[in-house]
């Protein structure tokens, strides 16, 4: 199972990076989205996956009873998801404004200030 998830992570990274190397700024943002998913999944899987149960202490206990899924990567991912949403929204709005300013989504037409 982990092997399959590892392959999914690799595919997500590869697709995300490939899209980042396109000339269209829209594809760049899509690529960033895929890489965000890949990173979250990477943290999740390398923290070891555990079927069923959850990191919640049962009412009749005071500590987590093994086996339980690791709460640390979950906390990390939760904030990463929300932050990822924030940055993605920012990137999208930037994209929109850039498109309004230069009337193109071709990044080769946007880099005149860079050279």
């Amino acid at each position: 199972m982990e092997t399959l998830l590892a392959i999914v992570i690799g595919v997500l990274y590869a697709a995300g990076l490939y899209l980042m190397m396109r000339r269209s700024i829209v594809k760049l943002v899509l690529g960033l989205g895929l890489i965000g998913h890949a990173a979250n999944l990477l943290i999740f899987v390398t923290g070891r996956v555990q079927r069923g149960s959850s990191a919640v202490i049962p009412p009749d206990q005071t500590v987590l009873v093994a086996p339980f899924p690791d709460p640390v990567p979950q906390a990390l991912i939760l904030t990463a998801i929300v932050i990822g949403f924030g940055t993605q929204a920012f990137a999208l709005v930037l994209l929109k404004r850039a498109y309004q300013a230069v009337k193109t989504d071709d990044m080769d037409a946007m880099n005149t200030t860079d050279r």
Binding site: E2, A6, Y13, A15, L17, T46
Partner: peptide
């Protein structure tokens, strides 16, 4: 290049597990 990067990430994940 992207494919190799993806392969690398898969290998790293598997090694970590």
């Amino acid at each position: 290049v992207a494919g190799l990067a993806g392969l690398l990430m898969t290998m790293i994940t598997l090694l970590t597990i």
